[in-house]
C-alpha cells in the first residue's frame, strides 16, 4: 500500500512528533494535520499557547509539556484532525470530534474504529459535550489502542 497521499490513511511514522508515555499519562492533543495547508484556528484556540506554527501554511506543532488537554483545538479544527489522548493505567481515553447521529450517551458501549474504519475494539463513552457547534466525545478503549482508535460507531 502507498503512503497517505494515495490511501488517505496516516501511519504513526507520518506524525510530526509522538508524545512520551509520561506526556500521554498527563493527556495531550495529538495533531494528525501534517500537510502544508493554509489554516491556523487551532493556534488561536489554544488557551496556553501550546500550539505553534511557522506560518499559516505550516502544520501545527503541539508542545506536549505545555498542553493541558483542554480540547479547545479539537472543537475548532476544521479538518477534524486534532484528538486528545490520555492514558489511564491499562486504558486510554480518546477525545474526538463527532458529527454523526446518533450522538452516543455517557456509559454507552460503542465500536472503536481505526483510521480505516475497521472495528478494532470496544469503547465506553466517558464524556459527551458540545463546543463550537461540534460534539466532542471521550471514549475509553484498551491502552494498546491509544494511537490506533480515531473514530467510533454507535451500536444503538
Amino acid at each position: 500500500m502507498g503512503g497517505y497521499e494515495e490511501t488517505g490513511v496516516l501511519s504513526l511514522d507520518d506524525l510530526l512528533n509522538i508524545p512520551s508515555e509520561k506526556q500521554l499519562e498527563k493527556g495531550v492533543a495529538i495533531s494528525e494535520c501534517i500537510q502544508n495547508i493554509p489554516c491556523n484556528p487551532c493556534v488561536d484556540a489554544c488557551s496556553v499557547d501550546a500550539i505553534s506554527m511557522k506560518d499559516i501554511n505550516s502544520p501545527p506543532v503541539v508542545d506536549y509539556d505545555r498542553c493541558t488537554a483542554c480540547g479547545n483545538c479539537v472543537a475548532v479544527c476544521p479538518g477534524l484532525a486534532l484528538f486528545i489522548v490520555k492514558i489511564k493505567e491499562d486504558k486510554a481515553w480518546i477525545t474526538l470530534p463527532y458529527e454523526f447521529l446518533p450522538i452516543p450517551e455517557k456509559n454507552d458501549t460503542v465500536d472503536a474504529l481505526d483510521r480505516e474504519g475497521n472495528i478494532v475494539g470496544e469503547g465506553k463513552i466517558i464524556r459527551v459535550r458540545k463546543q463550537n457547534s461540534t460534539w466532542i466525545i471521550t471514549v475509553e478503549v484498551d491502552r494498546s489502542l491509544a494511537m490506533i482508535v480515531r473514530n467510533i460507531r454507535c451500536r444503538r
Binding site: Y4, E5, E6, T7, G8, V9, L10, E32, C33, I34, Q35, I37, P78, G79, L80, A81, L113, D114, R115, E116, G117, N118, R150, N151
Partner: peptide, 17 residues
C-alpha cells in the same frame, strides 16, 4: 495517482470505512 484534496478531508472519510 494521489488524492488531490487535503489529507484531513480524506482521513475523515477513511475513518468511516
Amino acid at each position: 495517482p494521489i488524492i488531490g484534496g487535503y489529507h484531513v478531508h480524506a482521513a475523515k472519510l477513511r475513518r468511516f470505512g
